[in-house]
C-alpha cells in the first residue's frame, strides 16, 4: 500500500474571472515520478505552482502529508515548503551570490545549520550535479544547463520530500538539455518523489511512473507511459501526440 504524499481535491484556479484550472483531483504517491504534459496554455505550470501554493487556489484543497496547504498559517506553510523543492524554467538563481552561497543560504537561514555543515553538503551536491569546480563563481558566468543544475542542487540542499519541476529544460539550448535530464533521471532513480511539467516526451516516456495529460484546464487522462503513448484514449491526447510525435 503506497503512502499518499500529495492529494489534490477539486482544485480550481481563476485569474481575473478566467478559469485556468477547472476541477482537478489527483494523488501523488511517495517515490512516484509524475510527468505532466499537454499543449501550451493548458494550465500545467499554474497547476504545479498550486501544489506549493506559490499560486493560491481559488477553491479546492491541496493536501501534503495530510495537511491542507490552502488552509494553514503562513508559518506552517513556510515549514512545509521546506519539504517541497521547486525548480523553475528560468532558474531564478540569486545573481548577487556565488554558486555555493546560492546553495547554502536556505539551509543556514531557514534550518539554522552551521556554515561548515552547509558548505560540506553544498559541495557534495555540486559534485552530484557535476559542478564541483564552479562553487565560487557567480551564476552569470554559467551556461543555462549549469545554472539549472545549480538550481537543482539548491533545492536538494533543503533535503526535500518532493521535487517540483516547472519546465526545467524549456529555456535551454538543445545541447544542454541532456545534462539536466541526466541529473533528474539520477534523482528519480534514487527514489525521489517528483512532479515534472515537461515537453521532453523522451524523458517522460523513460522516467515517469505515470503521465498526467492536461488540456483546457482539466487533467484529461492519466496512465503509465507505455500505455499512454501507444493507446491514448481521449481525443485531445490523440491530437496532441499526433503533433509532438511525428
Amino acid at each position: 500500500m503506497p503512502t499518499k504524499m500529495i492529494e489534490i481535491q477539486h482544485l480550481k484556479k481563476e485569474f481575473n474571472g478566467t478559469e485556468v484550472l477547472k476541477d482537478i483531483s489527483e494523488e501523488v504517491d511517495k517515490g512516484q515520478v509524475i510527468c505532466v504534459i499537454g499543449p501550451s496554455g493548458a494550465g500545467k505550470s499554474t497547476f504545479l505552482r498550486c501544489l506549493n501554493v506559490l499560486e493560491k487556489p481559488t477553491s479546492g484543497k491541496v493536501l501534503f502529508e495530510g495537511k491542507d496547504l490552502t488552509d494553514i498559517s503562513d508559518k506552517e506553510l513556510d515549514e512545509l515548503r521546506e519539504k517541497m523543492g521547486m525548480v523553475f524554467q528560468g532558474f531564478n538563481l540569486f545573481p548577487n551570490m556565488t554558486v555555493i552561497d546560492n546553495i547554502k543560504i536556505a539551509p543556514i537561514k531557514v534550518k539554522g545549520i552551521s556554515d561548515e555543515e552547509a558548505t560540506k553538503t553544498a559541495k557534495e551536491l555540486l559534485t552530484k550535479v557535476g559542478l564541483a569546480d564552479k562553487a565560487d563563481v557567480f551564476p552569470d558566468s554559467l551556461s543555462g544547463g549549469q545554472k539549472q543544475r545549480v538550481a537543482i542542487a539548491r533545492s536538494l540542499a533543503m533535503d526535500p520530500e518532493v521535487m517540483l519541476f516547472d519546465e526545467p529544460t524549456s529555456a535551454l539550448d538543445p545541447e544542454m538539455v541532456d545534462e539536466v535530464l541526466n541529473v533528474m533521471q539520477g534523482l528519480a532513480d534514487s527514489g525521489m518523489t517528483m512532479v515534472v511539467v515537461t515537453h521532453e516526451m523522451g524523458f517522460a516516456k523513460e522516467v515517469a511512473d505515470q503521465i498526467w495529460f492536461m488540456a483546457d484546464g482539466y487533467i484529461q487522462e492519466t496512465g503509465a507511459p507505455d500505455e499512454f503513448f501507444s493507446h491514448p484514449t481521449s481525443d485531445r491526447a490523440k491530437e496532441f501526440l499526433k503533433k509532438v510525435l511525428k
Binding site: L54, D74, E79, G85, F94
Partner: peptide, 15 residues
C-alpha cells in the same frame, strides 16, 4: 524579477 521571491519562498524562506 518575481522569480527571485518565488525561488526564495519555495526554499522555505519566510516573507
Amino acid at each position: 524579477p518575481v522569480g527571485q521571491t518565488e525561488a526564495a519562498r519555495s526554499l522555505g524562506m519566510t516573507k
